[in-house]
């Protein structure tokens, strides 16, 4: 009967092992963190530009662009479903997974429901609380607009 290899363990012995044969290792040398940050900024910017072009909407200034596939119409806030209204929710972090280790003690303090309430239009509090990059950091869409597609996709 044919036997099979222990997968990665057999396949791979290319780098320095961490303690106890762990897979802990740095494969391709030191990471240039500044370069990484520049690459990240560049990629995010192109992403944002692509999105702006695609939706004919300038997400940085929150203004519609003229001459694209979409025609944007401003709606009064009262006509927009609650979930689409511009607001900031401060939630107690559930998992340590996405929080930097140094903030555990501060972030893990149990909060009462009142402390977790919604803080409408308190962008300042928002940025203080959130550590994880949020899509709204890049797409500040207020969603007070609806689209009418001229062309099918």
């Amino acid at each position: 009967m044919m036997s099979l290899p222990g997968r990665g363990r057999v396949l791979y012995a290319g780098c320095r092992r961490g303690v106890g044969g762990s897979a802990q290792c740095c494969l391709f040398g030191k990471v240039d963190h500044e370069q990484l940050q520049r690459d990240y900024t560049l990629l995010m910017r192109t992403e944002l530009e692509d999105a702006s072009r695609r939706w004919s909407f300038d997400f940085t200034t929150n203004r519609p662009l003229v001459g694209g596939d979409f025609e944007w119409v401003v709606l009064p806030e009262s006509r927009v479903p609650f979930v689409y209204q511009d607001r900031t929710i401060v939630v107690k972090p559930q998992s340590k997974a996405v929080e930097p280790a140094s903030d555990h003690t501060k972030e893990d303090v149990p909060k009462t429901p009142e402390q977790c309430d919604e803080n409408t239009h308190s962008a300042e509090k928002h940025t203080l609380k959130r550590k994880q990059t949020n899509i709204t950091d890049f797409y500040q869409a207020k969603r007070r607009v609806v689209t009418t597609r001229k062309t099918g996709q």
């Binding site: 802990q24 290792c25 494969l27 963190h33 990484l36 992403e47 996405v98 994880q132 990059t133 899509i135």
Partner: peptide
Amino acid sequence: LTAEKLCIYTDNSIRPQELLEWELVVLGK
């Protein structure tokens, strides 16, 4: 898997914050 754990597996050559930022890049692409 947690971001911290994955960073440890890279022998801490990357930071959790970078992992989270690039998560967004990858998702977009």
